[in-house]
Structures are given as C-alpha cells and as structure tokens.
Design a protein around this nucleic acid. Structure first.
Lengths: 233, 233
DNA sequence: GGCATTTGTGACGGGAGCGTGACGCGAGTG
DNA sequence: CACTCGCGTCACGCTCCCGTCACAAATGCC
C-alpha cells in the first residue's frame, strides 16, 4: 500500500461499461485506477502492487466476489486494504454476508458515480479502523454508555434512544466525517431504505439538546457530518 | 487470565471460514485471537495460556461444545473464563442447555460479526457471569439477602420471590440500564419464551411496593429499566 | 448577481413503547 | 372443595418519538 498523492484503486468488475465509467470518475477525482475482469486478474494486479482500496463486484465470471474478499481479508498482507462491494441485489442478506466477509463498505447497483467516489474517499480517510469504543468525553460532553446517560458541562441532558446511538457513533469516530449513508447503516441499521434527510433532522435535534450555541457537530457540505474534539486542533 | 491491553479470545470452531471471519473482526477490534478446530486443540491452547474469553461452537468433530463448556466450568482455574456459545439451531432448548452448562452468553447462527464483537466486549466488561453481589443499600432501600427481607425507610415491605429476585438484579447493577431481555435471562431464567411485557408488569408491581412516589426504578424508553443511586450523580 | 444544489428548520401525523387495570389459571392452603 | 395468592397475559389509552414534508436559508458555481 503506497498512499502517495494518488491512491491506487483496483476495480474488479466484468462489465466494461461500468469499469469505464468508474475509472473516469475516479481519475477525475485524483485517483490512480487499475481494473480486473475476473478473480484471476484481480490477484495478479494485487501481486504487482497492492492497491489502497478495492472496488469489488459480487458477481464475477470465475470465482465470486465473496471468495475474493475472503481471501483478501484472510491474507495478512492485504487484510488492511479496504474493500467496497458492488452488489446488484439490495437484499439485506447480501449485505450482511458482505460484512461477515469483512468488506468495509458496500454499494448497491444502480449507483451514482458520485456516490462511489464519496465512498472511496470516505473509506480512505477513515482507514479500515475497526469499531473503536466511543470516547467517554469530548469537549464538554461526557457519555456514560452503561448508564445510558449524557452530560454536557456535567449537566445531564435527556436524549432519546436514537439520539443516544447517534451521539455514540459520532463519539466513536471523533474527527472523522460521517456520511449520511454511514450513519444510516450504523445508527439506523439501514432497515428498509430510509430518506437521507432523516439524518439531518436528527442531527438538528441532537445539536439542539447538546446546546445549540457551540457547534459540536459540524456540517461538511457535500459529504456529511463530523464531530471534532476542540482540544485537538 | 491476563487482561492486558489486548484481551485474548479463543475461538473453538471447525469451519475455517467462520474462524477466519471472526479472527479478522476481533483483531480489528483490538483483541488477540487464538483458534482451535476441536476439543483437543482447545484444551491444548487453554493449557498454554488461559484466554480472557472463549467463543465456542456447539457442534464439533470430536467432543461436543457442551462437553468442553462443562469441563471448563468444572475446573477451578478456568471456571471464571466467560464462554460464548455459537449454535446453529435457535431452539430454546439449546439455549437453556447452554446456560445450564454455565455458558455466559450465546449467539445463534447466522450471526453478524458486529454482534459477536459487541457480545465479547460486553462480556469482558461485566466480567464473568460471576456477578457482583447486590448492593445492600440504595437510597432508601435496604436489602437483606440472607433473610430475604426488604426495607424501605426501615419499614419492611413484603415482596414475592419473583419481585425479590427482580429487585436483587437491579441492586446488583445499580446505575446500569437493564434491557428486558437481560432481565428475562437473569430473573426468569428465560424458560420457554416469555412475553417481554411480563417484565413491565412486574416492574410496575415492584414500583408500587417500593413506594410509587419516588421513581427508584426509572424507565429508559426504547431500552429498558435502570435503578440509580440518588447519591451518585 | 442569479441560479442550482444542499442543508436548516418548524410542523405534523402515525405509530411504537409503556403504564395500567383486569382476567384466568394453577398451586398451595384451610 | 372453596379460597387466596402469585404470576403471565391481554387490551386499552396515553404519551412521546420518529420519519417525512415543505419551505427558508445558506452555500457553491457560472
């Protein structure tokens, strides 16, 4: 893994059109791209030079994407390379499978190119970092997971279960941008396709309860939201 | 048991895929992992160095997981190591059996990796099922476990056996939210699928007897119930 | 500056979650 | 056998929360 100015993205996908579109968009966005039509090619490309991230179609001519993913994640040298799964079916089963295999993100077809680029950026930014437990204290906010209580300036504030989970998620990833899609996955468990605006509303409510004065949760236009520690600057 | 920065988790499971996936996820989450394919290997690993927790498949090639669990729990040196059972069948019978054997938690296949990681964290946090003994006094309530009596403001109240166990459970975990599922497990021993609303009813009765005025047992909407010490704030 | 896109915000309707009272059953007791 | 007591279940009603919408504000782009 090189991680220089132009991260190298490997696209494993047999449909030529899709590859072309993705390569164009990713290069536009400043990435270096390589592509493979099937599993064999994919491993060859990886052997040449490990990519910084892999976009992996679930359905491939020879071995399935799941198998590739499993092998990638099983190998110490490549286990840390983030994998984004492309899947045609949006059933929850497939997604879970994807995650059970260790994929780091997934996108269902049809997808917007814009979305893919955002996901790639997001995943490179956050690294493959596994779920860290939430920080207990960030700025004036203290979170007691066991008791399920939140204090701002040692003053308890009442949050609903959902708001609590949302805050928990932010505090587990302090300093990193969370896309609406990530939040929908982690907080809402993504059951049955939700409007993304739902996230906005709940961020608003959370902001209100945490004290609207200070902006503890920042908006990152075009991407999502972020909570940063005022101490780390 | 070492309990340093990276708790050691032993995975006993014969299916290689599952082992691989679990090892990856747990390592991501900051655990050290060891695995064993059968009972013999499992005991060998344990002899080398006792793990901080064991994830144990019920179905194994040589001796069954139940037998391993029984032996673990029967041995003084390993009795305190928490065991999480993996079971393919979700029938209640198996669960009970699991608990009768002394397993500390169980997960039914298919499971999400996320869930496994969460359970492992939870079980390490709370320590072995060897729960802390209940507090004697919380606010105005005094609990005499031996004599099986309860006093509120030094005024005795009589509780039924079930109510007593419920109160005991709350007082053993003061300040922590208890979900209905947890309560069903700990108080009701989860015999044969109970309605969760049963918990509500008994909490109501308990509240009544403890004096409905003060809210000694709080409702945490969407989650469960919590008893907190008014002194600790 | 004008336009398009993204985000903030207030309001609202439906529904989930919970408190509560009542009921029936079974076990124990006289 | 009649009575009591404890427990699990149910149904009703109420409150609060959540998802969505429509519109305002803000931001970015040409």
């Amino acid at each position: 893994m090189t991680r220089d100015v132009h991260p190298r993205i490997l696209i494993v996908e047999d449909e030529k059109d899709i590859v072309q579109v993705l390569e164009f968009a990713l290069r536009q966005a400043g990435f270096e791209t390589v592509s493979a039509r099937d599993g064999g090619e994919a491993f060859a490309r990886i052997r040449e030079k490990a990519p910084d991230a892999v976009i992996l179609d679930l359905m491939l001519p020879d071995i399935s994407g799941t198998e590739i993913c499993r092998q990638l994640k099983g190998n110490a040298r490549t286990a840390t390379v983030p994998v984004i799964m492309l899947t045609a079916r949006s059933e929850e089963v497939d997604r879970v499978v994807g995650f059970e295999l260790g994929a780091d993100d997934y996108i269902t077809k049809p997808f917007s190119v814009r979305e893919v680029v955002l996901r790639v950026k997001a995943i490179l930014r956050r690294g493959v970092a596994g779920e860290a437990p939430p920080r207990e204290q960030v700025g004036p906010i203290r979170l007691d997971t066991e008791a399920h209580r939140v204090f701002v300036d040692s003053q308890e504030v009442d949050l609903t279960a959902l708001e609590f989970r949302l805050l928990e998620t932010f505090m587990a990833r302090v300093g990193r941008v969370q896309t609406r899609e990530q939040l929908l996955r982690d907080v809402w468990q993504m059951t049955g396709e939700l409007q993304t605006r739902t996230v906005d509303t709940h961020v608003k409510r959370l902001r209100e309860k945490l004290g609207s004065g200070r902006d503890l949760i920042e908006t990152v236009r075009g991407l999502g939201y972020r909570m940063s520690d005022p101490a780390e600057k």
